[in-house]
């Protein structure tokens, strides 16, 4: 399926905050109450539409445990967007945000759009982090903020799509150099008249072997 742009995302945050569930809700529109823990990295993809243009999102979901940091760090490379997730029912996951942010800023490209997500908004009765605190943190660090529930799907679409909108705007403003693949953006084959495969096929891959969907 052709697309105008491809954006790469990374999902980060403490273990058990619901990163994989957010991805599953976004890509498969379903929720698993007890989701397998993520060892290393997992991958998901979905097509969205912004401004009438097809945009393919490729999303890397990472393990939250500190021990895996040396592995997951490789996936900041070439990410245009990041979802930094905490759990509104566990204060410590909010307290660790600064460390995550430092890690992200250090290993990603400086234009990366970071969306701060307070997940599990359906568990309001067990809430430990106020919405205002999330908003304040986001304001202070120049992030976009949203509370989501991977369980009820509340704001999940918006979280992924708004991040894409931000990236798209940055492209329009000329902030992102779309010809530099390291920025986590690729122009789709349909938008690249000069070379038939575009820069979508990395490393000079022929598109003849391509199969499967997005």
């Amino acid at each position: 399926m052709s697309y105008a742009y491809l954006f790469k995302y990374i999902i980060i945050g403490d273990t058990g905050v619901g990163k994989s569930c957010l991805l599953l809700q976004f890509t498969d529109k379903r929720f698993q109450p007890v989701h397998d823990l993520t060892i290393g990295v997992e991958f998901g993809a979905r097509m969205i539409t912004i401004d009438g243009k097809q945009i393919k999102l490729q999303i890397w979901d990472t393990a939250g445990q500190e021990a895996f940091r040396s592995i997951t760090r490789s996936y900041y490379r070439g990410a245009a967007g990041a979802l930094l997730v905490y759990d509104i029912t566990r204060r410590e996951t909010f307290n660790h945000l600064t460390t995550w942010l430092e890690d992200a800023r250090q290993h990603s490209n400086s234009n990366m759009v970071i969306m701060l997500i307070g997940n599990k908004s359906d568990l309001d009765a067990r809430r430990e982090v106020k919405r205002e605190e999330g908003e304040a943190f986001a304001r202070e660090h120049g992030l976009v903020f949203m509370e989501t529930s991977a369980k009820t799907a509340a704001n999940v679409e918006e979280a992924f799509i708004n991040t894409a909108k931000e990236i798209y705007e940055k492209i329009q403003e000329g902030v992102f150099d779309i010809n530099n693949e390291a920025n986590g953006i690729k122009i789709g084959p349909s938008h690249s008249p000069s070379s038939p495969g575009g820069i979508a096929g990395t490393g000079g891959q022929g598109s003849s072997q391509g199969g499967g969907c997005c």
Partner: peptide, 11 residues
């Protein structure tokens, strides 16, 4: 036969 990119191959 998989889409020749890192993500899909990894998956």
């Amino acid at each position: 036969n998989t889409t020749p990119d890192m993500g899909h191959t990894h998956k």
